[in-house]
Design a protein around this nucleic acid. Structure first.
Length: 292
DNA sequence: AACCGCAACAACCGCAAAGGG
DNA sequence: TCCCTTTGCGGTTGTTGCGGT
């Protein structure tokens, strides 16, 4: 804290969604230098962002170990229970959900779980969160699942329902990892058959180069559901290439032009460059108990 | 085809705590 | 001890895509 050496000139920081190139710059920088003074990162990494934005981007999307995709039933239960106990202490709740960020938990709650809980409580047969939890865990009936996950089901119908879904094709493209759940009809049974913790952030180069047919939103260009099951074969990913990313379709308003594709950005050999301790040792966030 | 409403989620903003000088 | 800066957190807003009309 308070590193005065990190002086930076006042400048107009770029805002809005992150481009793949920005992601790459930030990622490269942190992998090379580790986590340090965030306020110094933008200048050193050549980014026109403020440190706060960089930090957020790293924590929420770029750091290794993030789990993407929809929440499992167990995760939902944890969120519901802990929200009832702790209130909106998202960072604390996220601590109990390896691979999930507080932002993700918060969004999930606000957009979905809150309504579900309120609906249940407001009904003629109000249920406590605990009851909700047991209900949801012990009665994953079809109707329950369908209603509880209607938005996921909805996503299934579309080719690219949400930004996260964009990358779903990757998994269905031959990678061995679980297909992103968001693109599957919700099915607890099927879900349970899948590896539970496909936690590697997608930026870890895939074992083989892959292609994505869907368009590539910058905001998730490197953070979507490209979560192949790496199965611990860590070293095998080293030779992967971020450059295999598809052309980015610029659909962001007001973010400026960044039609730059990730192609050509050196993406190989991340782990040649780093001391894993430097990378992971500095993780301050909530999901340090990740499955490495 | 155009418009509208909704859902999902990424990112920003403001505040408070933490920590160094 | 105070001041200043950075970090972390939670609330909120903005953007995008989809479905319905």
């Amino acid at each position: 804290m308070g590193c005065r050496s990190c002086e930076k000139p006042k400048m107009n920081y770029r805002k809005g969604l992150w481009s793949p190139e920005e992601d790459q710059r930030l990622r490269d920088y942190i992998l090379k230098h580790g986590l340090g003074c965030w306020s110094a990162v933008p200048a050193k990494a050549g980014l026109q962002r403020n440190g706060k934005s960089c930090r957020l981007r790293w924590i929420n999307y770029l750091r290794p170990g993030l789990k993407r995709g929809m929440f499992s039933q167990e995760e939902e239960d944890v969120v519901i229970n802990l929200q009832a106990k702790l209130g909106n202490k998202w960072s604390q709740i996220a601590m109990h959900l390896p691979g999930r960020t507080d932002n993700e938990v918060k969004n999930y709650w606000n957009s979905y779980l809150k309504k579900r809980v309120m609906q249940a409580q407001g009904g003629s047969n109000p249920k406590s969160p605990a009851e909700l939890t047991s209900m949801s865990t012990t009665e994953p009936t079809m109707s329950m699942s369908m209603s509880m996950h209607h938005h996921h089901v909805k996503n299934c119908s579309g080719s690219t329902a949400t930004s996260h879904d964009q990358d779903a094709n990757i998994s269905s493209n031959g990678l061995s990892g679980p297909a992103p759940l968001a693109q599957q009809p919700f099915d607890h049974q099927a879900q349970q058959q899948q590896p539970k913790n496909f936690v590697f952030s997608d930026w870890v180069p895939a074992p083989e180069s892959y292609s994505v047919s869907a368009h590539w939103p910058a905001s998730t260009a490197s953070s979507g559901n490209v979560t192949p099951s790496h199965g611990g074969a860590f070293g095998d990913q080293i030779s992967g290439s971020y450059g295999a990313l598809p052309p980015h379709q610029d659909h962001q308003a007001g973010v400026g032009s960044h039609g730059a594709t990730a192609t050509g950005i050196a993406g190989s050999g991340y782990f040649d460059l780093l001391n894993m301790g430097d990378i992971y040792g500095g993780f301050s966030s909530t999901n340090d108990d990740l499955l490495f």
